[in-house]
Nucleic acid binder design. Structure first.
Length: 649
DNA sequence: TCCGAAGTAAACATGA
DNA sequence: CTCATGTTTACTTCGG
């Protein structure tokens, strides 16, 4: 019955084909591998080539992670698939990420859950990217004499790739009758592309030989046809959670445990299903667990959807990491042809064939994820996303909203402090068409406080919304009206006549006053939040994800920023803040500059003045003098703003 | 069931 | 007149 309802939900969404077609068009679109600038260097590898290759390696590592993420999507219910008419739509639906809108996911999962998952995956991916990047740098340092090291790395990467392919096969990524969506997925993430890339980029016979030798897969022969990249997998679909020793081919892997834990959802004796950390002694037990606990039901489906979203976001993240890597390389003068890398950081798509993925990820030809743009960029996934969301979304609740308004006040209550939330999920909200789990008032306040002068014009507030949230790049009439409505309604927003017009400021005192009546930190909130879909260990995961992702985000700008104690503290913040009254806590900032709200609140109070002042709330202006410019510093600021949050009691 | 908070929609005013 | 900006009211939804 759970299955029934799940499939029902999905089947009612009419845009199956949209999602599928858009996905395949994405993957097909960039078919040409135009990046073969150095593909002709067969004999010796110049440092530049080597670096280029290393870059590709790093990207590939990240890509592999994505592949594994994607592959993990397919496994869950798949061994339950008996081709019943009910289940098929579900699995099909799960295979087409584009048709699962963030809104739908939001309906299923609360934002904290979603974010926890996302952050977890994001952190993992970033970690991997960084690790690879580190390897790259290390190798770079040894460049002169260490071609051998390069070879080793190459092989290592190949092994990873190979392992992934094995995983794909073992878990039955390729179903009996591959759906169009499946094919699209394969096209989008096909290892053959990578393989081709290897050939193009490396031009190192030994490497290629090693690859061929190391695997039984004839990937290299299928590079032209990505859908045939799984020739064996397609025929080896049989057991979905197949035996540890896949019957396809035994990899010449050194580690035996790898064989026994080859299932991507199984590792280190644990089930790696998102939110599940069940201990399984061996593969058999794990399989049993998988079948019992993660059968095809609402929850699994929902989690699967989340995972889909995770993968999507990771793709976006990957694009960013690629960009960063490119900038790094350029900075290291490995690309003399690109004298001004930072002015044109988006030239990746033309410089590497792997990077064509980046451009594929943005079907509208958008360069890359919006970085600093104050321009009202269209959402990255606007094409498929918007289409699917508008057409997909259950039209039941409101015909007036093309995308369907989702009232999420419940999650508002669970929301983490907006600053930390935003800091950690900045990229997510920026790119994902997900409604942020904050009230308009919170967002407005945050926007204002984030500004250098802690005051914004209405239009600047608008811009902040569109800049920070993909969700607010559409339905402008609705939310802008809401913004205005909130500005006028709440006394905490003070309109101040300025020289060049009116600006809006925040009266912290008023803001604090309107919060306490609600949800003063009771543990029940945490309970509520966690109980949602029965994510058993979500709390732990969430905390870990918070910590990790905050690290990642912290590290993002310089990439090598050491993990700070502050970010570790976020761990606790993530927990405590959920259960406590949210934002007001962080305004009790010891680190904040000297300005008090009184100092900041402008003399001109158009609205009525605050009445009584709550002494205990003692709001202090956060981060007064931080310059506001680009997202990166903004992220830092967000994070910094969070720091006070942790000193809860 | 009631109440308050929040979101949404809309009417209206005002000034550039 | 149009548009952006504000203000206000009404209504709905949701959770306590």
């Amino acid at each position: 019955m759970m299955v029934e309802s799940a499939s029902e939900t999905i089947r009612t969404t009419p845009s199956n084909q949209n999602g599928v077609s858009s996905l395949s068009s994405q993957s097909d679109g960039g078919g040409g591998r135009e990046g073969g600038s150095n593909g002709d260097t067969n004999g010796e590898i110049s440092p530049v080539d080597l670096l280029h290759l290393q870059q590709q390696q790093a990207l590939q590592a990240a890509r592999q992670f994505l592949l594994q993420q994607a592959s993990g999507l397919n496994s869950p219910g798949s061994n339950e698939v008996k081709q019943s008419p009910v289940q098929v739509p579900v699995s099909m639906a799960m295979m087409s990420p584009q048709m699962i809108t963030p809104q739908q996911m939001q309906q299923i999962l609360s934002p904290p859950q979603l974010q926890a998952l996302l952050q977890q995956q994001q952190a993992l991916m970033l970690q991997q990217v960084k690790t690879t990047c580190f390897l790259f740098l290390q190798c770079f340092l040894q460049l002169g004499s260490k071609q051998l090291a390069f070879q080793q790395q190459l092989i290592q990467m190949q092994q990873l790739q190979q392992q992934h392919i094995l995983n794909l096969q073992r878990q039955g990524l390729v179903p009996l009758q591959p759906t169009a969506a499946m094919q699209s997925l394969q096209q989008a993430m096909c290892p053959s592309d990578l393989q081709q890339l290897w050939k193009e980029v490396s031009g190192v016979p030994s490497a290629e030989d090693a690859l061929k030798q190391a695997e039984g897969l004839d990937l290299s022969t299928n590079s032209s046809n990505s859908t045939s990249a799984f020739p064996k997998a397609a025929s080896a679909h049989i057991p979905l959670h197949s035996l540890p020793n896949g019957q396809n081919h035994t990899p010449k892997r050194d580690s035996h445990e790898e064989l026994s834990s080859s299932h991507p959802l199984y590792g280190h004796g644990e089930c790696k299903w998102p939110g599940c950390e069940a201990l399984c002694e061996d593969m058999g037990q794990f399989i049993k667990h998988l079948n019992n606990e993660h059968a095809l039901d609402d929850r699994s489906t929902a989690q699967c959807r989340v995972q889909m979203q995770v993968v999507q976001q990771l793709e976006i993240q990957l694009a960013k990491e690629s960009e960063r890597l490119q900038a790094m390389m350029t900075h290291l003068h490995m690309r003399p042809s690109e004298p001004k890398p930072f002015n044109q950081p988006l030239n990746l798509a033309s410089s590497g064939s792997l990077l064509k993925r980046d451009s594929e990820a943005y079907p509208e030809g958008l360069p890359h994820p919006p970085t600093s743009a104050a321009t009202p960029i269209t959402p990255l996934r606007q094409g498929p996303s918007v289409i699917s969301s508008s057409s997909l979304h259950t039209h039941s609740h409101s015909h007036t909203h093309p995308v369907g308004p989702i009232r999420r006040r419940n999650s508002d209550k669970y929301c983490t402090p907006i600053a930390s939330e935003l800091a950690q999920n900045c990229e997510f909200y920026k790119n994902a068409d997900v409604r942020p789990p904050f009230t308009y008032a919170s967002l407005i306040r945050h926007a204002i406080l984030e500004s250098p002068d802690r005051q914004l014009t209405l239009n600047e507030i608008y811009n902040w919304f569109t800049r920070k949230f993909a969700y607010f790049r559409r339905n402008t009439a609705t939310w802008k009206n809401a913004v205005r409505h909130n500005l006028s309604l709440h006394k905490c927003f003070v309109r101040v006549e300025n020289v060049k017009g009116a600006v809006w400021t925040v009266d912290e005192v008023e803001y604090q006053k309107r919060r306490p009546p609600k949800m003063t930190g009771s543990p029940t909130l945490v309970k509520n939040m966690i109980s949602g879909l029965g994510f058993g260990s979500l709390n732990a995961s969430y905390q870990a994800a918070l910590a990790e992702s905050s690290l990642s985000l912290l590290n993002s700008p310089p990439l090598v920023t050491p993990p700070s104690a502050a970010s570790l503290n976020m761990l606790h913040v993530g927990h405590d803040d959920v259960s406590s009254t949210v934002e007001q806590v962080n305004s009790n900032g010891s680190c904040s500059p000297t300005l008090s709200p009184q100092q900041y609140s402008h003399p001109v109070h158009v609205k009525e003045e605050p009445t009584e002042v709550e002494e205990d709330s003692r709001p202090v202006s956060l981060l007064a003098g931080v310059t506001h410019s680009l997202p990166l510093p903004s992220d830092e600021r967000d994070l910094e703003e969070d720091l006070p949050t942790e000193e809860l009691e």
